[in-house]
Amino acid sequence: NQASVVANQLIPINTALTLVAMRSEVVTPVGIPAEDIPRLVSMQVNRAVPLGTTLMPDMVKGYA
């Protein structure tokens, strides 16, 4: 099972992602792969992401 990126805190809309804001977890459905965490740092989310939410490619500006 592949680990996905999960919000480690509430991430407000247009907030730049940080290492502290993300964690890796095996979840269903699978979201952005955990190995992409370094690439996600400083990218912005295009919606509010609640704690525990799996990050999907369409939630991160410039990711997809």
Rank of each mutant, 00 (worst) to 15 (best):
N1Q: 14
N1I: 15
N1H: 12
N1R: 07
Q2D: 09
Q2N: 15
Q2I: 11
Q2C: 10
Q2A: 11
A3C: 11
A3V: 07
A3H: 09
A3S: 10
A3T: 07
A3L: 11
S4H: 02
S4W: 02
V5S: 01
V5K: 03
V6R: 03
V6F: 03
V6G: 02
V6S: 00
V6T: 04
A7R: 01
A7E: 01
A7N: 02
A7P: 01
A7G: 01
Q9H: 13
Q9T: 13
Q9L: 13
Q9D: 08
L10T: 12
I11T: 03
I11Q: 01
I11F: 02
I11R: 01
P12G: 07
P12I: 06
P12E: 11
P12Y: 07
P12W: 05
P12D: 08
I13F: 11
I13H: 09
N14K: 05
N14M: 10
N14W: 15
T15Q: 10
T15K: 08
A16V: 12
A16T: 10
A16C: 12
A16S: 11
A16L: 12
A16E: 11
L17F: 01
L17N: 00
T18H: 06
T18A: 07
T18V: 07
T18C: 06
T18I: 06
T18N: 06
T18L: 06
L19Q: 07
L19M: 13
L19F: 14
L19R: 10
V20H: 14
A21K: 09
A21D: 10
A21N: 14
A21P: 00
A21R: 09
A21T: 08
A21M: 15
A21V: 12
M22H: 00
M22K: 00
M22N: 00
M22G: 01
M22S: 02
R23E: 03
R23I: 06
R23C: 06
R23P: 00
R23W: 04
R23V: 06
S24Q: 10
S24F: 08
S24I: 13
E25A: 12
E25P: 00
E25Y: 07
E25M: 12
E25D: 10
V26S: 08
V26T: 09
V26A: 07
V26Y: 14
V27E: 02
V27I: 06
V27G: 03
V27T: 12
T28F: 13
T28A: 14
P29I: 05
P29G: 02
P29N: 03
P29Y: 04
V30S: 13
V30I: 14
V30T: 11
V30F: 14
V30R: 09
V30W: 12
G31M: 02
G31S: 01
G31D: 00
G31R: 01
I32K: 02
I32Q: 03
I32H: 00
I32E: 01
P33L: 08
A34C: 08
A34D: 06
A34E: 08
A34L: 03
A34S: 09
A34H: 06
E35F: 13
E35N: 10
E35K: 11
E35G: 12
E35L: 12
E35R: 10
D36M: 11
D36E: 15
D36I: 07
D36V: 08
D36Y: 14
I37S: 01
I37F: 02
I37R: 06
P38S: 11
P38N: 13
R39V: 10
R39H: 10
L40P: 01
L40C: 04
L40N: 00
L40G: 00
L40A: 01
V41I: 12
V41Q: 05
V41E: 05
V41H: 01
V41R: 03
V41D: 01
S42I: 04
S42Y: 10
S42R: 10
S42K: 13
S42W: 09
S42Q: 10
S42D: 10
M43S: 04
M43H: 08
M43D: 02
Q44G: 05
Q44V: 14
Q44I: 14
Q44W: 15
Q44K: 15
Q44P: 07
V45D: 03
V45F: 00
V45C: 05
N46Y: 08
R47L: 07
R47T: 10
R47V: 13
R47W: 06
A48T: 15
A48F: 10
A48I: 13
A48W: 12
A48E: 13
V49E: 04
V49P: 05
P50Y: 11
L51E: 14
L51K: 14
G52I: 02
G52C: 04
T53N: 08
T53Y: 14
T53W: 15
T54W: 03
T54E: 03
T54P: 05
L55W: 01
L55A: 03
L55C: 04
M56Y: 07
M56I: 06
M56G: 04
M56H: 07
M56P: 03
M56C: 06
P57W: 14
P57E: 06
P57M: 06
P57F: 06
D58Q: 13
D58I: 09
D58E: 12
D58C: 13
D58Y: 14
M59C: 05
M59H: 07
V60W: 00
V60C: 05
V60N: 02
V60G: 01
V60K: 01
K61I: 14
G62L: 07
G62F: 08
Y63Q: 02
Y63L: 05
Y63G: 01
Y63H: 03
Y63T: 00
Y63C: 05
A64P: 09
A64G: 12
A64Q: 13
A64C: 15
A64D: 11
